[in-house]
């Protein structure tokens, strides 16, 4: 396999041997891949090392037969140099953690690449709000993985529509059901669910509900793995 100048985002890097790196990337047409970048660490080769940092948009060429490819060439994508700071940086790490744990390697998904690009662009612009965009990213990530939330219907047999003014409880396996105000179990307002479905989260209540709901849903698919980035907030 030999791929030339594929657009990609760096998700994570680990030191490997003396001067090499193992790099995880989200590519446009090949999904998440893992590469070995030989001889890039250390002061002499620092220019490609600087590119191989998380949240960098690159054009990358690689080759190899096994699932651990060899990096052949890396260049910065023009006019895509973003720097995330503060809480936005931690949110970026959160997105990367989700992608690293939930995506299978070498599973192409063009739409996910586009959505991730939009998310990072949003996070990089310090004056734009980003919480809602992060929620849409989580929702769409679940959908693209094949675990889409049905935010418009109840789970019962009649499949009743979600109503704006009702409260619902959520079960990751079953879906939503009308909630009888049971203490201790989180409940979500119907209006929040519909707002998340149409991607028009605006009020703090809607955002809070969406965050809690997606956390529940993602936790289920992470199978008990605890994400570290939320601990930094």
């Amino acid at each position: 396999m030999h791929v030339l100048l594929q657009p990609a985002w760096i998700l994570h890097t680990r030191a490997y041997r003396e001067t090499s790196l193992i790099v995880d990337l989200l590519t446009q047409d090949h999904g998440r891949i893992t590469l070995v970048a030989n001889g890039v660490r250390g002061h002499k080769k620092s220019s490609s090392y600087a590119l191989l940092q998380p949240f960098t948009a690159v054009l990358v060429s690689w080759s190899g037969k096994t699932s651990l490819y060899n990096l052949r060439q890396v260049e910065a994508q023009q006019k895509m140099s973003y720097t995330l700071v503060g809480r936005r940086l931690i949110s970026g790490f959160y997105a990367n953690e989700l992608l690293m744990y939930l995506l299978h390697r070498d599973d192409p998904c063009y739409e996910l690449y586009q959505r991730y690009t939009r998310l990072i662009t949003q996070l990089a612009h310090n004056n734009r709000p980003y919480h809602a965009k992060l929620r849409y990213f989580e929702k769409n990530l679940l959908a693209l993985l094949g675990y889409a939330l049905n935010l418009t219907c109840e789970r019962n047999e009649q499949g009743q529509m979600i109503k704006m003014d009702a409260n619902y409880s959520f079960d990751p396996e079953m879906g939503f059901s009308r909630c009888q105000n049971r203490v201790g179990k989180p409940s979500f307002c119907g209006a929040s669910l519909l707002a998340l479905d149409q991607e028009i989260l605006t009020t703090p209540k809607h955002l809070q509900d969406a965050k809690q709901l997606l956390r529940l849903a993602l936790q289920y698919h992470l199978r008990g793995r605890v994400l570290k980035s939320p601990l930094l907030l």
Partner: peptide, 10 residues
């Protein structure tokens, strides 16, 4: 250093 993806927290 803090590195959520390597499991290194505060």
């Amino acid at each position: 250093k803090l590195s959520p993806l390597d499991g290194i927290g505060p």
